[in-house]
Design a protein around this nucleic acid. Structure first.
Length: 279
DNA sequence: CCTGAAACCTGTCTGC
DNA sequence: TGCAGACAGGTTTCAG
């Protein structure tokens, strides 16, 4: 489910808590459960269990689509990939657990007072890393879309350095971090650019418009707490504002032409052939 | 360097 | 109803 706005929403909600749920901040991890070994990318399971025990959660943040939990002596990185979700849950059960409490739960961080953070992931693509040096993973990422250091000039330069179709380039996390299939389609529509357009063919105005469009759709996504179009994530409302994503055959909100679906780089891609012509 | 295909997984929906 | 095939918000790896 998660792209930048969804991951941002999850990070904020975990930090905030609500009437019934405590914040994850300040929680001390008393033990951990792992039900699907491959979910833990690093270190090995024994080291993970022993290293994470007795550490407290000092902060939660996001970089690209990674969640970053600052612990006392390490960082816990979590990537939710396609179907991952994180849930603070209360369960008064004796530990250790031999089986997950809910189908598709793969990792628990057990806190004091019977609360735990559950990593639930139907498709098992998600991964967690416990490491003293998050940079060896995060440094591969391109700039944050909202980083003020990413200027129009800067972005135009980056686009010109590649000769790639816009859609797969924007999905490339080393080019820019945080965009996924929804927000890429929405941003290209907002900017009026064809998803197959070669990145080095854009005018300066085109690239400025694209950067503005990326920020606009991500901002809108964050304001609506992300998009919920699937079974796992129920928080967001951005799905009610899709202009082209999953709107195949529906009239383009700008010109009325039916929205087209095609496949580019193995990803379903939605756009308006009239508003986003391939020049 | 670029593109496309396959792999990692499970669940849902569509069409015959 | 049953079943094959397509498809799903992601990323990595490999071939051409």
């Amino acid at each position: 489910m998660p792209e930048l706005p969804e991951v941002e929403t999850i990070a904020r909600n975990l930090a905030k808590g609500d009437e019934q749920t405590p914040s994850v901040l300040g929680q001390k991890i008393v033990s951990s459960s792992i039900f699907w070994a491959k979910t833990v990318a690093e270190p090995d399971l024994l080291s993970f269990h022993s290293a994470i025990k007795n550490q407290s959660v000092l902060n939660v943040s996001r970089r690209g689509k990674f969640l970053i939990f600052d612990l006392d002596h390490a960082f816990l990185l979590i990537h939710l990939r396609m179907s991952g979700d994180l849930i603070m849950r209360y369960a008064d059960m004796p530990l250790p657990l031999s089986k997950p409490l809910v189908p598709h739960d793969h990792v628990y961080l057990h806190f004091a007072d019977n609360w735990h953070l559950a990593f639930n992931d139907t498709r098992k693509f998600g991964r967690v890393w416990l490491t003293p040096d998050p940079n060896h993973i995060l440094s591969k990422l391109g700039p944050e879309p909202f980083d003020p250091k990413l200027t129009d000039v800067n972005f135009a330069d980056k686009l010109r350095k590649h000769k790639r179709q816009l859609k797969p380039l924007l999905l490339d996390q080393s080019f820019i971090a945080g965009l996924g299939n929804i927000y890429t389609d929405e941003a290209l529509f907002e900017a009026g650019l064809n998803p197959r357009r070669q990145s080095n063919s854009l005018s300066f105005d085109d690239s400025s418009r694209l950067l503005r469009a990326i920020r606009k759709v991500l901002q809108l996504g964050i304001e609506h707490n992300g998009a919920s179009i699937d079974w796992a994530y129920k928080g967001g409302g951005f799905q009610n504002y899709f202009q082209v994503y999953q709107q195949t055959g529906n009239p383009c909100p700008r010109c009325g032409n039916p929205i087209t679906r095609t496949v580019i780089g193995q990803r379903g891609t939605h756009f308006c052939e009239r508003c986003q012509p391939l020049i």
